[in-house]
Every structure is written in C-alpha cells, then in structure tokens.
Simulated scan of single mutants.
Amino acid sequence: MVTGLTLLHTSPAHVPVFDALRDREHPGAVLRHLVYPELLERARAHGPESVAEDLRGLLGDAGGPVLVTCSTLGAVAEALAPALGAPVLRVDRPMAAEAVRTGPRIAVLATVESTLAPTAELLAEEADGRPVSVRTRLVEGAWELFVAGGTARHLAAVAEAVDAVTDADVIVLAQASMAGAAPLARTRVPVLSSPGPGLAAALRLCGADTTAAPPA
C-alpha cells in the first residue's frame, strides 16, 4: 500500500521542484500538492499567526501527514499538529538540524524578510542549548525576480549573496525557492537547502520508501 503525502505550498513554482525530487530520489511516492499563495501574502502583511485558522482547516482536511514548504508558515503549522492528530513537518527542520551539526557559525539567507526570524528561531531550537551564532541577511530584490518569473536571475542573485558570505561554517538557504542557487555558488562553505532533506523526512513519516531503487 502506497501512503500519500500532502505538500502545502505558497507558490506554484514548488510543485515541479518536489515532483522532480520524488521522481529522482523517491520513485513511487504519492504526492498531493495544495497551493495557496495568499497565505504568504497575508503572513507577510500581518504576521504568520494571522493565517493559523486557515492552516488549521487545510491541514485538517489533508487526512494524513503534511509537509509545509513555506518557511514563514512552518512554525505555526507545526504547532497545530497535536490538535489535528496528524504529523505536520516544516520543510526546513531537517536542514536546520544538519546546519547546527555542521558548525556553530551559521549564515542564513532569505529573499523574504518574514522568513528570517522563524528560521533563526528554528536553528536555536535545533541547537538545543549548544552555542550557535546565527547571522541573517535578506537578498534584496531576489523575491521580486522570483515572483515575476525570472528564475535564472533570482537564483543568480542568491548565489552571488552566498559567495559574499565570510566567516561562516555553514550557509542556510532559508526558503525552498532558493535551492537551485546552491550548485551555482562557488564558495567552499557548505550550502544547505531544504527540499531534499525535507521531502525525505516527510516520506519517512508516511512510512514510504525514501531512497531510489538501485539501478538494474
């Protein structure tokens, strides 16, 4: 029996990214995509808590595990899980856990300002008392390029910001939409993104296979 995973997105651009990950790394996994850009728009204007009731309804209707791919909404969504009685995972949690294992000096890049504080809080939570130094930076103008469909220019701007980071043990790309910039960067500092580890962790919650079958 194949167990399905619901993914809650705030941009339709995430759908092909996660489908490609599934096809490459988790063949046979069943993904169901929900896309609600208005949730991020409202959260940016009024704070993540402003969409809590909407999230409660959407997550409750999913009928099983949910992966929330928007870092701005992740903490609010996870907090609803006990009341819903179903697993809810924010896509950036596995990435944050890897970051604090990699080193104490963590640089966080985001293209939406509302993502910076939740990501820093998540890193502190995953550090669990271990000393970490988290520095955040907004990549100015990159989000506008992403929204306008200028994917290549958006990723190039993020990669340029990555290469400008100094004195860090690890660089965190706070949003799933930034993942494609990692292979473009030339820095020797480890650069972490969330879609790959987030999807793998969520599929484990479903009891689904998390690795591609070996070649015949």
Rank of each mutant, 00 (worst) to 15 (best):
F18R: 08
R90P: 07
G28T: 12
R101F: 00
G64A: 06
L67C: 05
L116N: 05
A77I: 05
A29V: 09
A20K: 13
L80K: 01
L40F: 12
P87C: 10
L73Y: 04
R56I: 12
V112L: 09
Y36W: 15
P65E: 10
E41V: 12
L34H: 15
R44N: 10
C70K: 05
L39N: 07
A96T: 06
H26W: 12
P27E: 14
H26F: 14
R32N: 09
E78A: 15
P16L: 08
A117P: 02
A43H: 00
R32L: 13
P104A: 13
R105M: 08
G103L: 10
A117R: 14
P104K: 01
H46Q: 15
L59A: 08
E38A: 12
V91G: 00
E78D: 10
V88G: 01
V91F: 06
A81C: 13
L40I: 12
G28S: 14
V35W: 15
A29P: 11
V30H: 15
H33N: 14
V112D: 02
V17T: 14
R42M: 11
F18Q: 01
V51M: 08
A81N: 02
A107Q: 00
Y36E: 14
L55S: 09
A99S: 09
V88D: 02
P48K: 03
P65W: 10
P37L: 09
A45V: 05
F18M: 12
R44I: 07
P94V: 11
E78G: 11
A45E: 10
G57M: 08
